[in-house]
């Protein structure tokens, strides 16, 4: 089941703009390897779930997977063949806002080559260009 908040203050939100690069959540914090987003925009709850399932199926019962993004923004969409106006449409899906640098998933407890292959599969499910990153040690 795709992710969505349990409780919200408002049912609908304005669309907003996604400017600049990621200033937080842009380093591997929990696992050893991660998948970093290089584009900016919305990532729907279904896409996040598809990535999670792809990684989980590849590593089966090994290791631990962290999903670093959460879809907390309701996106509304007017039904087809509807005239403009008559107020804001009903929420259609939930999305997370991502910016270049955002870490989407993290993996730990698996060898590096397995992590690379698992996260490459996840990257194919993502609507943005992604890259494999490791926890930095400086």
């Amino acid at each position: 089941m795709p992710l969505m908040p349990k409780r919200v203050i408002f049912r609908k939100q304005q669309r907003g703009k996604i400017r600049g690069n990621a200033t937080s959540g842009n380093y591997v914090a929990f696992g050893d390897y991660g998948l970093q987003c290089l584009g900016s925009g919305w990532l729907s709850a279904r896409q996040i779930e598809a990535g999670r399932v792809a990684a989980r199926q590849f590593v089966s019962r090994e290791g631990k997977l962290f999903v670093r993004v959460f879809p907390d923004k309701p996106i509304s969409k007017k039904p087809l063949e509807t005239r403009m106006g008559k107020g804001k449409a009903e929420p259609e899906f939930w999305a997370a806002r991502v910016r270049p640098g955002t870490i989407l998933y993290e993996l730990t407890g698996v060898p590096r080559d397995v992590a690379v292959r698992a996260l490459t599969r996840v990257a194919h499910k993502m609507p943005y260009r992604c890259r494999f990153v490791e926890r930095r040690h400086v």
Partner: peptide, 22 residues
């Protein structure tokens, strides 16, 4: 740690399609 198999939460029939309004 022992990696635990993730239990797929079944889409409960009574699960709300929308979040609760605070």
């Amino acid at each position: 740690e022992i990696a635990q198999e993730e239990v797929e939460p079944e889409a409960a029939a009574d699960a709300p399609a929308e979040p609760e309004l605070i």
